[in-house]
Each structure stands twice: as C-alpha cells, then as structure tokens.
C-alpha cells in the first residue's frame, strides 16, 4: 500500500483569457506526490509545466479541478492547515537572481518561511539558518551577507537552504539547474539528491531535460500542449518510450557521443499555437505515425505496460 499523498492534483485545468481567444495552458492533469517519491515533469516551453507548478503552489487558481493537501482541497484549508501546507511544500525556482530579494540579508531570506507561519522563535530560526546553510555547503557566516555577494551557483544553494528551513515534506523544483554552468549543475543535482535522502523528501522536478530527470526521478510525466501524454518509470521512459513525442524528446536529448545511433523518430515540426490546438491528438501534426483516428479523436490516457500513455497508435499495438 502506498502512503497517503502529500499533495495531489485532480483534473487540473487552467485556461487564460487572452486576446484572440482562450489559451489552454493546462488540461485535465492529475498526479500525486507521495512521501519519498520523486516525480519528473518533462516538456518543452509552453507545455504548461510552469502553470502546473504555480497551481500546486497556490500562486494561481485552476479553472477547473483541484489541488489537495493531505486530502483537503487548498481553498478549504483552515489557518492551521494553510500553515502546515506552506511549511510542508517548498519551491525552488529556476532563476536564483530573481528568487533572492537583493535588499535582504541571506539570513532573513532563509528564515522567512519559518517566521512567516510563526512556527519558530527568532533564536530558533537563526539556529536553523546556520544549520541549513551548512547542509547546502555554505558557511554559517554567509547568513550575514547579501545575495549580490554570491555567484549563481551559490545563490541557488541559498534558495535550496531556504526551501529546507521549514523541514518540508515536498520540494517543487522548477528547472533548478538549467540556468547554471555544467560543472555547477552536477554539484546542485548531487546536493538535491543527498538532501532528499537525508530528509526523506518527496520531490516534483520540472525540467525540459530528460537526462536530468532520469538522474533525479523515479517516475516521469511527459506533458505536451498542457496534457499528459505519457507517464511511467524513469528508466523505461528513457529506454523504451511509448508516445511518439517522448521518442522525439529522447532523440533530441543529444548524447555526448559522436557515434550515437541515428534516430528512428527524429523530431519534426513546431509546437502549434496553444490558442488553436489541433483537433484529435494534440501531437498529430508533428507525428510521423499519425493516422486518421489521430486527427479525429483525442486519445485517452490509458495504461500500457508499467505506465500510462495517450496515443492511439501505441494502444493499437505500438509503433
């Protein structure tokens, strides 16, 4: 039996009204984050992964569907429940320059989640700040400095320290390394993995990079044009993807090997406008395997092997 999920998304949809119509940023996305599990969300720009992250953080409200914290829908949490949610779910964003206020000392930045929900006294908070600073590989003295004194990699460590301060259960990591140099990326990824083991954290790792997700996650959810097209164990998704889009993503994740095999399913075409998504399967205009049914009817997300896939062709026996 799996333990009760910390955070759960049920049929989340978010539509933005823009000039020219409705933009379906996210459609009917369901997933759940359970203790100790690490889920990767993979997709390209405009696929809705950032919208999903914002909905899970209650920075935005879904057009339909709901987000539940320990079984309670977010809008229905009482004050104590809301505080518990804010402590338990902590984000780390992509850009460490934008995520640290330039006019605050590192100590106050990290202590903010502790002091905001009134869980710690100042003395306790300062002790915790020193503790998490050392855990992310910085010295406690860093607390007295301001963000501009740190490099991008160090800033991201500070952002991670802040996320850890309230002893969370779930980290929502939105492209936490993609603005970093390669040598720094590896450092941060290792650090996140260590911390996850140490705290027994659940993580939701949003990324455009399949290789990073493979390294970080047990399970992968692939999103295209706001919909889940495939999900399954990370290792299988990266070796035997079922959905043609996942195959294209895998082919596009260029290995550092000049003798890598030629790709059977090279990516084609461009992302259609999310204002007028194609009828049927959202991927059909770019799909080398598209048939008539793909243009007429949207495939349901149904189980296949050890995962889920939304593809007519895959369901009819594979590609």
């Amino acid at each position: 039996m799996t333990p009760a999920p910390i955070l759960e998304a049920r049929d989340l949809s978010r539509t933005f009204r823009v000039r020219g119509g409705n933009l379906h940023a996210l459609s009917e996305v369901s997933l759940s984050c359970s203790p100790g599990r690490s889920i990767g969300i993979v997709g390209e720009s405009g696929c809705g992964k950032t919208t999903l992250n914002r909905l899970l953080l209650q920075l935005d409200r879904p057009t339909s569907g709901e987000v539940l914290f320990r079984g309670v829908p977010l809008p229905r949490l009482d004050t104590a429940g809301r505080h518990a949610y804010r402590r338990a779910v902590q984000p780390v964003f992509q850009n460490p320059y934008s995520s640290l206020s330039p006019r605050m000392r590192v100590r106050n930045i990290i202590a903010e989640p502790l002091l905001a929900t009134g869980t710690a006294t100042r003395a306790e908070a300062w002790r915790r700040v020193d503790e998490v600073l050392e855990q992310v590989g910085l010295s406690a003295r860093a607390g007295d400095r301001v963000p501009s004194e740190f490099s991008g990699g160090q800033r991201q460590r500070i952002a991670i320290a802040r996320a850890l301060a309230s002893r969370p259960e779930l980290l929502l990591l939105d492209e936490p390394v993609s603005s970093q140099d390669i040598s720094i990326q590896a450092q941060i990824l290792n650090l996140l993995k260590d911390l996850r083991a140490e705290y027994g954290l659940a993580t939701l790792f949003v990324s455009h990079n399949l290789a990073t997700v493979r390294f970080m996650c047990d399970e992968v959810v692939v999103i295209y044009l706001g919909r889940i097209v495939e999900r399954g164990p990370a290792a299988r998704i990266c070796t035997a993807p079922q959905h043609p889009y996942t195959r294209a993503l895998l082919a596009a994740a260029l290995p550092a090997d000049p003798d890598a095999h030629a790709d059977t399913t090279p990516p084609m075409g461009e992302l259609p406008s999310p204002l007028s998504p194609p009828p049927g399967c959202p991927y059909n205009p770019r799909c080398p395997h598209a048939r008539d049914i793909c243009r007429a009817e949207r495939p349901a997300l149904a189980s296949r092997h050890d995962g889920l896939v939304a593809c007519h062709v895959a369901h009819e026996g594979g590609i």
Binding site: A186, N190, K193, A211, P255
Partner: peptide
C-alpha cells in the same frame, strides 16, 4: 574529463554524478 563525466545521460542513472568542486 571531469566535465564530460558530470553531464547526466538518458542511458543510465548513477547514484551520484562525478563533480568538479568549486567554481570557475
């Protein structure tokens, strides 16, 4: 060598990535 080794790959998932300590 260190830079090449530190790039994650879709082929396999080691427990840890070999890293270059420090910053450029």
């Amino acid at each position: 060598r260190a830079l090449l080794a530190s790039v994650p790959s879709t082929d396999h998932a080691p427990d840890r990535l070999p890293v270059i300590e420090g910053q450029p």
